[in-house]
């Protein structure tokens, strides 16, 4: 077995430290928001986890295309890693968003473009795993997985636009002034520090998880091959 690369070991530790600092910044350092109160602190991790979900989503689509072009199973492992991370982080983002939305919007859930799109992305990725589970042949599994992520990657933005044609109540925190009535707010300098640090920390965490998951996929494949060799 190959030893874990030392860069990855360092990255693991760095991710943990960054997560700790980010938690401190979000929960203690950032000032309490005047209107929404403490619950607004959810926002830092909510946006950061949604951001990781997006990164995973894009990585999945791209690696799907690369797999179809090259036929190299390595890219299938990259794709499945990206899908898994995206699935988990979108779920965390949805849960955190609900916690925030209950006091602010007075509802856990609303059929707003971003919420609905995140939920549909979850469903697509669950369907993706069900599709993979039903196929024995690794090449075909990888091909079908790549085709389905590609179809999903194209349909999700269209879904977003379609739902956006309805009216939205999701606040656009960065950039617009009109969103205050819907739970938007202007960030103070300290809030901005916490916000961008959370984004940065979660990006590093994403890279770390991504790398670990790809490595795990490679090892799992090796175990599979060794098993076959023993059985022969």
């Amino acid at each position: 077995m190959q030893a874990k690369p030392s860069t990855l070991k360092v990255l693991d530790v760095v991710s943990l430290i960054l997560l700790g600092i980010s938690t401190y910044l979000a929960l203690v350092f950032a000032p309490t928001e005047a209107v929404m109160g403490e619950v607004q602190r959810v926002f830092y991790f909510h946006v950061a986890t949604a951001w990781v979900g997006m990164l995973g989503f894009m990585a999945a689509g791209v690696s799907g295309i690369i797999y179809l072009r090259t036929g190299d199973l390595k890219w299938d492992r990259v794709e499945i890693a990206a899908v898994e991370i995206s699935l988990v982080f979108f779920f965390i983002a949805i849960v955190l968003g609900s916690i925030w939305a209950r006091p602010v919007w007075n509802t856990w859930w609303t059929w707003d473009p971003r919420l609905t799109t995140a939920a549909i992305t979850q469903l697509i990725y669950i369907a993706y795993f069900m599709l993979r589970q039903g196929i024995e042949d690794p090449d075909r599994r990888a091909r079908f997985g790549a085709v389905y992520t590609l179809v999903g990657a194209v349909s999700v933005p269209i879904t977003f636009m379609a739902i956006r044609l309805f009216r939205t109540i999701h606040p656009v925190v960065i950039g617009t002034e009109s969103a205050e009535a819907q739970g938007g707010f202007n960030m103070t300098a300290d809030m901005r520090v916490a916000f961008f640090f959370a984004l940065f920390a979660f990006t590093v965490i994403f890279v770390d998880l991504f790398w670990n998951r790809i490595r795990m996929g490679t090892l799992a494949d090796k175990v599979e091959q060794l098993k076959l060799k023993v059985m022969q």
Binding site: L123, A127, L131, G134, R140, V147, V151
Partner: peptide, 29 residues
């Protein structure tokens, strides 16, 4: 496209709607 994938899997009887509905949402909306 998705039906040709679904029929080649073990769970083919149930898989098609699960694969199809989330990606066909824009059409339905």
């Amino acid at each position: 496209l998705l039906a040709s994938m679904a029929v080649q899997t073990r769970t083919r009887d149930v898989l098609l709607p699960i694969l199809l509905f989330p990606v066909v949402v824009p059409v339905l909306i």
